[in-house]
Computed example of a mutant assay.
Amino acid sequence: EILMGQISPSGKLNETFVRSLSQIPILEYPRSLRNTYYIESIYTGYRYYDAAKIDVAFPFGYGLSYTSFFYSNGAKNGNSITFDLTNTGKMDGKEVVQLYVSSSAPFSVPKLLRYKKISLKPQETKHIELFWEREDLEEYFDPWILREGDYTFYVGSSSRDRQLSFQEHIDGANIEVPNAYQNATYVKELDLHDFHFLIAYEEKENIRPKRYGMNTTIQDLIDTNWIYRLLIRGIMKKMLKDDQDTYKNLIEEMPLRILRMYGVSQTTMEGLFEMLNGKWIQGWKKINQNEIKKVIHDLEGLHESEIQK
Score class of each variant (00 low, 15 high):
I235Q: 14
N249Q: 13
E304K: 15
I26V: 15
I54P: 07
Y71I: 08
N35W: 07
K279E: 14
F17E: 13
R47L: 00
L112G: 02
P106Y: 01
R162H: 06
S119D: 15
Q182I: 04
R31S: 11
G61P: 08
M239I: 13
D50F: 01
S108P: 07
W132D: 02
T268Q: 06
N225A: 06
W144M: 15
S119E: 09
L276E: 00
Y38V: 13
D220F: 03
N79K: 12
G149P: 08
S119L: 07
V295H: 04
G271S: 10
I222L: 09
I281M: 12
E203Q: 13
G271I: 05
T36P: 04
P209K: 11
K90Q: 12
F83S: 06
V264D: 03
L112D: 01
N225G: 02
N249I: 06
D92C: 12
N14K: 15
D242C: 08
M269D: 04
T16W: 03
V109M: 09
T44H: 06
N206Q: 10
Y100N: 03
E168T: 12
Y46R: 06
R31H: 10
L33P: 07
E138Y: 10
Q219T: 05
Y181A: 00
I258N: 08
L137D: 04
W284T: 14
T86Y: 01
R31E: 13
L164C: 00
E133I: 00
A173G: 09
G172C: 05
S65H: 09
S102W: 00
N87L: 05
D242F: 00
L250V: 13
M239K: 03
K117N: 11
D142L: 14
L164K: 01
E300Q: 13
Q182K: 13
Y62F: 13
K12P: 00
E135H: 00
T82K: 03
E189S: 12
G74V: 07
E168L: 04
R211V: 15
E304D: 12
